[in-house]
Design a protein around this nucleic acid. Structure first.
Length: 504
RNA sequence: GAUCGGUUAGCUCAGCUGGUAGAGCAACGCCCUUUUAAGGCGUGGGCCCUGGGUUCGAGCCCCAGACUGGUCACCA
């Protein structure tokens, strides 16, 4: 197959060969013993103290400004950029000036990895720089990087902004757009601080099957695959809830899992086919206890990640400091529509939906209708973290019946910026009730509800052995990350969002 | 899934009522040499997303498709 290469790629390959021709390995195998970073030098260099006098650093060459026997350049390491100052006679102390005249000046390109030894100093114009005494080629770059530059008028050249290119070539995006790296560093911190919060409570991080015979625990279309040796259909999990509950049956006090779920559904700004969920189950607790736990946890994470509980998101200021207001689903609907639907029958509710211009179809039961009203009239108003509690029973087959309110379950969802962030129950641990709920789901499925849940016989068996009262919680980690990092697309908090194959 | 937009040089984008391509940055060459996007002069670089069609002639108009972004619908 003929490979088309651009002029710039061809030149870089020629430069590669020229480096080899002068006896330098452009891809050396041995480690490079750097002893500091650009960030450390910027933070701690003090000319009076004469520190940073024996520096070794490594990174990509990002700019070259050549002026005869002396040149300035910039290198980008894992922490940031720093200017370097190179003189010919210092890196080439003998008669042989090849390393400077040819290798540095001609054969090294933007994006190449180099290692340098030297000492820190401040130039006449006041720029902190490294005076180079030794230069080593660490790795050649064969493709041109788009180098973002800002000119004297503040005009930006070469910005690498096309979302498609950024997602498809995230490696380039990360090199060229430093703020992207910050988002992912924060994402990592969100995960680690959440783990720290749970671990401090003594709860156990566990792993449960990703490959499942029965895709239980949620209502969603799964990815289907096949196990060759077992000659058996297998699904990628859409949830791990039923497995985590089995572990509570087994006697753990608290278990949580942070992992990928897979749903074979549409993709948009807030949905990727694989996404990261956190689910936690704690024995002998209920959903009221869980609300306090979630407030503390999110406040803790916000502080760890951003140093404050306030986050600016799309011009709104959101405060994760608890406690969060609590409103029952009926109360919230009454607040935003003026109608009390708590005693309303299904038919009356259909009329209400028509009046409110909410589209419905005949397969929807009373619970689904309530959910539709809520989605259309309430959700978007819940900007600050708000708990909505006590959902209709038929929407929630895995939650315990409400202790005092007929027809409802002990469930809450946490809404932030008009979106659901967390979902929690007092878990249903009555195996007889649970079987009935699964059967009701089957009835709904026959009525045409394609989101109805699948019955898991082994899970029911585990409940029959006895599960303590338990509270469970799920959090969509990608969406939480979006909020805490100010990103508006899930693709901006995933390194490699799902993309169609390029056809070119 | 519906709808509107985008796709032209390595990157970001122009391209008029249709006359087979331009800029800035990047690259390459020369000049100058302690610069701050260093400067000056010059050069090269294009399957104009793909396939059809209309036309003497298509980057531009028409049809079909691909990828992609926004909005709406559904879901976490």
């Amino acid at each position: 197959m003929e490979v088309h290469r651009s002029e710039q790629e061809i030149i870089r390959r020629e430069n590669l060969n020229k480096i080899i021709a002068v006896g330098i390995d452009p891809f050396p195998a041995e480690m490079y013993p750097y002893n500091t970073t650009a960030k450390e030098i910027h933070a701690n260099f003090d000319p009076a103290k004469k520190n940073f006098q024996e520096i070794i650093i490594a990174g990509r060459l990002m700019q070259k400004r050549i002026m005869g026997k002396a040149s300035f350049a910039e290198i980008l390491d894992t922490t940031g950029r720093i200017q370097i100052y190179i003189t010919r006679d210092e890196i080439c102390p003998t008669e042989d000036k090849t390393l400077y005249n040819d290798v540095f000046k001609k054969y090294l390109d933007i994006g190449d990895f180099i290692g340098i030894k030297g000492y820190a100093f401040v130039t006449q114009t006041g720029t902190l720089s490294i005076h180079v005494t030794e230069l080593k080629v660490l790795s050649k770059s064969l493709r041109p990087l788009p180098i973002v530059k800002k000119d004297a008028d503040g005009k930006v050249h070469d910005a690498f902004t096309d979302p498609e290119q950024r997602y498809r070539m995230r490696y380039v995006d990360l090199v060229v757009n430093p703020q992207v790296k910050e988002v992912f560093i924060k994402r990592s911190k969100i995960l680690s601080s959440m783990r720290a919060f749970f671990d401090a409570k003594g709860w156990l991080e566990v792993e449960t099957p990703v490959l499942q015979r029965i895709h239980g625990g949620a209502a969603a279309r799964p990815f289907a695959t096949h196990h060759n040796t077992l000659d058996m259909p297998i699904f990628l999990r859409i949830a791990n809830e039923l497995y985590l509950k089995r572990l509570i049956v087994g006697g753990f006090e608290g278990v949580y899992e942070i992992g990928k779920m897979f749903r074979n559904e549409g993709m948009d700004r807030t949905h990727n086919p694989e996404f990261t969920s956190m689910e936690i189950y704690v024995a002998y607790k209920d959903y009221i206890w869980m609300m306090e736990m979630v407030e503390q946890c999110l406040e803790y994470i916000a502080l760890e990640v951003n140093g404050k509980t306030i986050v600016e998101y799309g011009g709104k200021v959101i405060d994760f400091a608890g406690p969060y207001p609590r409103m029952s689903m009926y109360e919230s609907i009454e607040k935003y529509t003026g109608v009390n639907i708590s005693e309303m029958e299904e038919e009356e509710m259909r009329k209400l939906c028509k009046k409110l211009h909410i589209e419905i179809d005949p397969t929807m039961g009373r619970g689904k209708l309530i959910d539709e009203i809520f989605g259309a009239k309430v959700e978007a108003n819940l900007i600050q973290p708000t708990y909505i509690t006590d959902y209709p029973l038929e929407m929630t087959p895995l939650a315990k019946k409400h202790r005092s309110k007929e027809g409802l379950v002990e469930r809450f969802e946490l809404f932030v910026n008009g979106k659901e962030i967390a979902n929690a129950y007092s878990e249903l641990n009555d195996p007889i009730d649970q079987r009935q709920r699964f059967e009701d789901q089957l009835t709904l499925a026959k009525r045409g509800d394609d989101e109805a849940m699948v019955l898991d016989e082994d899970f029911l068996k585990s409940l029959e052995f006895g599960m303590p009262p338990t509270s469970g919680l799920g959090i969509g980690m990608d969406r939480l990350t979006m909020l805490l990092t100010g990103q508006h697309s899930i693709q901006d908090v995933l390194f490699f969002p799902q993309m169609k194959a390029e056809t070119k």
